[in-house]
Amino acid sequence: MTLALEAVALRKRYGRTWALSDFSVSLPVGRVAALVGPNGAGKSTLLQLAVGLLRPSAGDIRVMGWSPRAHSQQVLPRVGFLAQDVPLFRGFSISDMLQVGRRLNPRWDQATATTRLQRLGISLSRSVGHLSGGQRAQVALAIALAKRPEFLLLDEPLASLDPLARHEFLKELMEAASTDGLTVLLSSHVIADLERVCDHLLLVNAGRLQVAGEIDDLMARHALLVGPQVEPDVVIPGVEVIKSLRNIRQTSLWVRAQRDDFRVPAGWQIRDLSLEEIVVAYLGNPDANAFPAPSLEGIAG
């Protein structure tokens, strides 16, 4: 299994604060992965380490199999990065920006970038400083994609966009993702959007990876159980409790289980959880973890 991103015991310190501590992850190629977590959890730090803008304090990070700093010439041509503040030169026109991109990138695909922007009705002669937030994000995406990256990393690309601009941006992003082999890692707080466009989740909390896996699999393995009031230490065979809520009559349990592995106890109801409910349950309980079981492929490889 080829990995787009792999980190082992990765640490990053800013002064006396650990932004990432003992962070390990493996993201296979071809995924559209959501990077989720509270502000300050280490999401931006991880993305900047992946594209070599930051140097790890300890541990190892590899992108497409290479160290982003030691082997930048193997990594940088193959990755695209959209930073949080969409850094475009405000005084430049869009065609100036494309010109810069063409000079800097050997695999530059000018035709796709111009077609994409024309289809969106964004004139190349316009100055970057006069674009709306949605248009600026689209221009930045078009430039990142014109590099023909194999791995596209986006830091909060949806944060400043209105609902329509967000939808238009995600349409473009999904069209790019449907091209063979492009791996996408995007950080965002808009979980409803992520549930729609992502197939993989990386949940970061306080500098560590708390949950990782295929979203379909995570949704199938989590549920809400509601039943009578029970003692806090009651154990239902086959389930692990992530979060619980009790009152004098009722117990609510956010649980992880294989649906077939356990029987819903008599007097209890079960319902599915949304991705957002799963994320919130884990964030409220930093001791709970969920990682995919090692696959046969992983053991053999």
């Binding site: 559209v32 349409k171 999904m174 069209e175 091209t179």
Partner: peptide, 15 residues
Amino acid sequence: SVREVVSRVAVNPNT
């Protein structure tokens, strides 16, 4: 095609 669908409704291609 998958590409046409995702570019219209913004959903994951694998879906």
